[in-house]
Amino acid sequence: MECKDFIHWLRNRENRQAEEENEALAHALDCPDCAMLRRVDRKLEETIRTGLGRVEAPAELKSNIALLAREKPKAQLFQHGWFLIPVAAVICLALLVLLRNPLPGQLDSLEKIARLSEKVHMASVPMEFDAREVKNIPAWFQERGVSALAIPSFPGRHFNLQGGRVYRLGKIETAYLLYNADGKRYSFFALPTEKIPLQLVNNQLYRYPVNRCVIEVWKDADRVYILVS
């Protein structure tokens, strides 16, 4: 082996062949310069190993990471795809419901007003007061938080007031009066205009038949009235 082969052997650290080693060592014995190069290189190698010795992680960091690990399950819960599926499903369902019925409980269409009032009418709910006992009906309602009710006259109709109560149509509290005329029951609801997100023409009668009932809706200034017969 010559010096250049020896240096090649030194350089080729990762691919050294076992048989070359004996030749190289024999050459080093014979060539002090090459032997010195090998020794210096080995010394540099050791110096790198010493200089790059393992550094231990500080204890505080270890405990921080351990803490982090304990928090993991909570954080991981949100990482799971399966966790998101029911959440997404619920959101979709809620969106669907909202799309079909954007403001549940709101009297946002005449059709809804008609259906709800017909339902109340047919349910024959008990009255809270008897017409013979209460003289000032608007005041009775006002005491119960329902704004002043101006009872309209019903020209051409001979209605006898039976009683009244506060009743919710959807989510809106109304003044509910029950009338009787010719043996038939009539339900009457009065509520403030601002509670209904509808553009109704003043004093125009809207008439809706629902099942066997007829529902009449009209607006008079700041009141909306509903009559079910």
Partner: peptide, 24 residues
């Protein structure tokens, strides 16, 4: 593997503070 990660982080960054941040 915490020690390994920290050690490599230290050798890459050259200082303990950056190595801790990187490990964390």
């Amino acid at each position: 593997h915490l020690s390994l990660v920290f050690n490599v982080a230290f050798r890459l960054t050259g200082n303990c503070y950056d190595a801790e941040d990187l490990t964390q």
